[in-house]
């Protein structure tokens, strides 16, 4: 209870979310369920990255009245992981839309959402 910090809680949440996402990716048979597992995996990775950049008792990296302009280095959190996650979320939406379009095309070809019916490349 002594060293239970905010960033530790969110880090553990993110790690378990990643594991749930991988479990969904590997065990589900429905193609849309697989895409849902992928989005959960994405969200988990983003939570891990933001919580690693957090610094205890500091504010957001935006300089306004609450931040002393001469002492910025000791009052804001790390801006670099936030910038990475910001763009990664938008890319994640594009990739999700691409995967769902492929699911739609596969359904139009074979009339099935079961992954077991697509065994063309199985050896």
């Amino acid at each position: 209870m002594e060293n239970l910090n905010l960033e530790i809680i969110t880090l553990i949440t993110g790690v378990i979310l990643v594991l749930i996402g991988i479990w969904g990716l590997l065990t589900q048979k429905n193609l849309i369920k697989i895409v849902i597992g992928f989005t959960l995996f994405d969200t988990g990775i983003h939570i891990i990255m933001v919580s690693i950049g957090y610094v205890k008792n500091r504010t957001a990296p935006i300089i306004d009245q609450s931040v002393n302009i001469n002492d910025v280095g000791n009052s804001v959190v790390d801006p670099v992981p936030q910038a990475l996650v910001l763009t990664a979320i938008v890319i994640g939406l594009g990739v999700t839309a691409l995967m769902l379009t492929y699911v739609l095309k596969m359904y139009q070809k074979r009339k099935s959402l079961e992954i077991n019916n697509y065994n063309d490349l199985k050896w």
Partner: peptide, 18 residues
């Protein structure tokens, strides 16, 4: 959670997109 972790930019993006 992002808002608690002092990342308002990321919170806005996630709420609008995710």
């Amino acid at each position: 959670l992002y808002l608690l972790l002092a990342a308002p930019d990321v919170a806005m993006t996630e709420a609008a997109i995710g």
